[in-house]
Every structure is written in C-alpha cells, then in structure tokens.
Design a protein around this nucleic acid. Sequence first.
DNA 1: GTCTATACATAGACTAACAAGGTATAGGTG
DNA 2: CACCTATACCTTGTTAGTCTATGTATAGAC
Lengths: 112, 112
Amino acid sequence: MDPKLLSGTVDMLILQVVLPEATYGYHITQEVLKRSQGYFQLKEGSLYPALHRLERELFLESYWEQADSGRRRKYYKITASGKKTLEEKRAEWTEFSTGVNGILGVPVHGMA
Amino acid sequence: MDPKLLSGTVDMLILQVVLPEATYGYHITQEVLKRSQGYFQLKEGSLYPALHRLERELFLESYWEQADSGRRRKYYKITASGKKTLEEKRAEWTEFSTGVNGILGVPVHGMA
DNA sequence: GTCTATACATAGACTAACAAGGTATAGGTG
DNA sequence: CACCTATACCTTGTTAGTCTATGTATAGAC
C-alpha cells in the first residue's frame, strides 16, 4: 500500500487503540494489524516517533512496567485532551472520506 | 483540514476528474471544490507539481489551447496507463478506508 | 486605473512515514 | 553452547508530497 495514504491517520489510529485501556507500542502494532485484517503494518519507525509526539502534545501519558518475565514495556494512557482530539480527528476523517468518495462518485450511505 | 490526509489521494482525484474528458488545471481545482462541497481546496502548489508528475509518469498527456479570448489553457488528457492506474488507486482507497474504519469500529456496509 | 478572477508556474519550508540500524531479553532448537 | 525468532524499545537519515509565498500574464468590472 502507498504509505502516503496513512499520512495523517496514524495518530488517530493510535489514539483509538489506546482509548479503551492503556497499552504499549508493540501491542499497538499487533492490534492495528489484526483489526485491519493484516492490511496496516504500522512500522516501528512510524510508531515510536508518533507515540513520542502524542505524549509531547499531552494526548498520551506513559509509564514503564515490568512484565511477568524481565521484559519491560512502556504503557501509554490516553488523556482527556487526547480523547477530545480523537473525537475531532474522527470527525475530520468522516468528512475527508466523504469528500473523496464524493469526487470518486461513490454513493453515500446513511444521512445524505 | 489536515493537509496530510490529502497526501496520496491527490493523484487519484486528479485522474478521476480528468477521466471523462480533457480538462485544465484551474478547472480541476474548481471541480474538486464543487464535488467535495467546498471541502477540498486543492492548492496550486499541490496541483501543478502533481500534474507534471502525472504527465512524467505517462498517466496524462497535455496540449495547449487558446480559449475564446487570449487566455491560454493547458489541457490534460488521461492515457490508457492512467486509466489503469486510476482503477488501482480506487481499489487501494477502498481497502484503505475500509481498514481505517475497521480500526475505528465503524460498521461496514455491503459485503462483510 | 485598480481590483478581482482566470491561468500558468516554481522555490523553499515543513512534516511525517519509512528503511535501516542499534540495544536487550526470553524461549526454542540443534 | 550457539543460533534463531519473537518480543520490546529507540534513533538517524532518506524520501516524498502538500503548502505558502511569490512571480508572470490576460480579461472584465467599477
């Protein structure tokens, strides 16, 4: 897939995955892969910079945790500000995809 | 709107607009604006480089024409290769937006 | 005469995804 | 024991594409 398509949606996808419960980076990649039926292979070179960016913007908070067996994980938890941003990004995505489909001549479902 | 979202779709949108008949740059921006209900303001700094790129890749062919009154327009016509690429990009877009909606938990219409 | 719309074009800034490389632990296999 | 794979984090440099800003030029309105 053209990586450029992902541009601008990665932050939203991460926030969405982290929304229900705090998770760590590696798990996010697996989750995104699963939920998109193997379509999105979120690369580490995209993921970790994105996580750091989201934390810097105060949309995520992080803390280290030691897993069962020596392995350390950095958990990320969404903030109130992050939830608000996610809602905005979701709305933007809906508008955007509706716009694209409009140009492609794809019929729109639901409220016209 | 976040300009990053547009990344990767501009080429497809241009090819789609040019598909039914040859058009020129300025008209493409107006058409995209209209068909997306004023949502996509395709900027000249994105449009012209994209047109030149698409021509370089042999997806478009161009020719100059003199309009009624002194104004010159550069018309772009889609090639066979461009039509094939458009089909591929449309398929890619469908997969992509389905993948995003899958992660967002948006219910899918049509064949599950 | 000036302003707006039309119509093309380019240079430089900026941003974000990626490839490639690095560190480290756990568990399995030969 | 040595090696490989999966897990788990991170960073540097490349690349690509959109945008802002700027420039040129014509037509028509006021």
